[in-house]
Design a protein around this nucleic acid. Structure first.
Lengths: 253, 253
DNA sequence: CGCCTCAATATGTATATACATAATCGTCAT
DNA sequence: ATGACGATTATGTATATACATATTGAGGCG
C-alpha cells in the first residue's frame, strides 16, 4: 500500500517566509541539513527531547515533523536508538501522465480526436493477457487517433473490460475519447505503466503519417479499480513529437 | 516542494488484521470508501466530530488520519465547510529508475561496465544548457557502455559539474560507473527525467551494435544537490532491450 | 437590494500528559 | 564466556484541552 504524497515542508517560501507552522519549520530545517549533505547518511539526528529543547516546543510537535520525515523516507526511526539519516534508496520519480488533450493544448496546438474503430467481442487470449483477466468475458476494442493541429499526435489502442464497466457497452466514443470518459466514471485504484521504444509497423506508420520502421514512444497503461481490471491502453507517439517528464523533488521544489 | 511518500494505511493486512493503530484504521476505512467509489468525488466525508463519535476516539486521532488523506491528495479540506473527496487529478505514477547493474542482473545476465572516453574541459554552451549552468566552469565528460552478457545494453553520455563535485576530477571511472560513484557521495535533492524515443545515429548504433536509424529509448536525467547542478546523463537503450515501469497504487499494493 | 458586521463552525496547530512498545544495556547467575 | 532478566530509553499512539484561523450564514443597516 503506497501512495504518492506531497510533503510540503514550508510551502516553498521565497521571500517573507513567515506564518509557517512550527512542525513544518522543524521538518524543513532537518530535511535541508540532510539534503545539503551536512548530515550524511547514517548520521543520528537529535533525539525528540533535544529538539524539544532546541525549538522550545512540545514533543508532539517534534514527533509530527520526524514522523513525516520518516514516512517520506529521509530518515529511519529506531526505538531506543534514535533517528538516522537514510541513504538514498532508489531513483524514484513522479511521472505525471496527463490527458492527451491537455498535452496538445499545452503545446498551443488545436486538439482533435477521431475514433477509428470500435467493436465488441468476447475476450481472446491476448486480450486476457493484456487485461490480466482470468476468465473470458465481453471486451470493447477501440482504436483512436489524437491530432495536434493537422498532424496526428498519438495513436490509441484500447481494451475495456465490459464486465467491470458495463456502461461502456452503450457508448460510441465518437464525441469523447475513452480516457476522459473513464476518468470520473470509474474510480481507479491502481495503474501500471510500461514505457518503451519501438519501430512503427505499417499500421501505426499509416495512422501517424510516418515512415514504417520509424522510432516511436509507446506508453502502455493498465488500470484497476478495486481489484478489477478496467482497461488496457497503448499510446504510440512518433519520436520527436512527445517526451515524458518525471521529477523527483524531495524538498526544494 | 513535493516528495514521494508511502502512505501505509493498514500495512496491507491480509489475515488477522489487528494491532493496527486507530488513525491508520480510520485512514484505510475512508480511503477504501473513496477508491471503491462508494464516496464519489465531491462527496462530503463526515466531520471530524462525527468520526470522533463513530470511532469513539479523540479529535486529534481523527485529525491525524484526515490530514494524511489530504496530503495524499485523496481529499480536500475546507475550513468551516468540511472535507471532500477530490476528483482524480493526474495520472501520477512512481517511476523507479534503478542502477543499470541491478537492471541487468535482474535479467539474470552478467553485468560488465566499460569506460569509453573521459576528458575534462571548460563547459561550452551546450554543456551549460544541459546542466542548466549560468557561468562557465570545469566539467567532466564521460562516455560509457554497460553490457548485459556479451551484448551492449546501454550507452551512457554524462556531464559532471566539477564545480559541484570536485573529487570527480581525480576519478578515472575505469572500475566503477559514474552513477554508483555519485550516489552516496553526493546527496541529490532533485532530479528531472526526460524520456523519449529516438533513431540511433551512427555513433550510438556502433556503440550498441545495432543498425543506424533503429529505434532507441533515451532516458535523460539531470540531478541537483541543494540548488547546484551536479550531473546530466543520457542513457540510450536499443528498442526491445529495455522498458520502464511506473506504478500507481493508492491503496492496494 | 447590497454591504457590513458578527457569531457560529470546522479545520489547523500546539500543549501537557499518559501509557504502550521495542530495543539496548548492565547486572547477575549459571 | 554466556544467557536470562530487568531497568532504561526513545519512539509510537492516544487523550483532553486550548486557542488560532478561515469561511459561511444570518442579521442589521444604509
Amino acid at each position: 500500500m503506497s501512495m504518492i504524497e506531497t510533503l510540503d515542508a514550508n510551502g516553498g517560501d521565497v521571500e517573507g517566509s513567515e506564518a509557517v507552522s512550527l512542525h513544518r519549520r522543524i521538518l524543513s530545517d532537518i530535511s535541508e541539513k540532510i539534503l545539503s549533505g551536512a548530515w550524511a547518511p547514517g548520521h543520528r539526528i537529535p533525539f525528540e527531547h533535544e529538539l524539544t529543547a532546541e525549538y522550545n516546543c512540545s514533543r508532539m510537535t517534534v514527533n509530527k515533523a520526524l514522523s513525516q520525515l520518516a514516512k517520506a523516507g529521509l530518515i529511519e526511526r529506531r526505538r531506543r536508538s534514535g533517528s538516522f539519516v537514510r541513504r538514498p534508496q532508489s531513483q524514484a520519480a513522479v511521472l505525471e501522465i496527463h490527458d492527451i488533450r491537455i498535452e496538445v493544448e499545452a503545446l498551443g496546438l488545436l486538439y482533435r480526436y477521431e475514433r477509428v474503430a470500435r467493436h465488441k467481442r468476447r475476450s481472446n487470449v491476448e486480450d486476457r493477457t493484456l487485461l490480466e483477466l482470468n476468465a473470458a468475458g465481453p471486451v470493447l476494442v477501440l482504436e483512436c487517433r489524437h491530432f495536434a493541429g493537422k498532424r496526428p499526435f498519438a495513436h490509441e489502442q484500447r481494451l475495456i473490460n465490459l464486465a467491470a464497466v458495463t456502461e461502456a457497452a452503450d457508448e460510441e466514443f465518437l464525441g469523447i475519447a475513452p480516457g476522459p470518459w473513464l476518468i470520473g466514471r470509474v474510480p481507479w485504484s491502481a495503474a501500471e505503466h510500461r514505457i518503451r521504444a519501438v519501430a512503427a509497423d505499417k499500421h501505426i506508420a499509416a495512422a501517424l503519417d510516418i515512415a514504417a520502421g520509424a522510432p516511436c514512444l509507446v506508453v502502455e497503461r493498465r488500470t484497476w479499480s478495486a481489484e478489477h481490471p478496467v482497461t488496457h491502453v497503448r499510446f504510440t507517439y512518433a519520436a520527436g513529437s512527445h517526451m515524458l517528464v518525471a521529477r523527483f523533488t524531495p524538498s526544494q521544489g
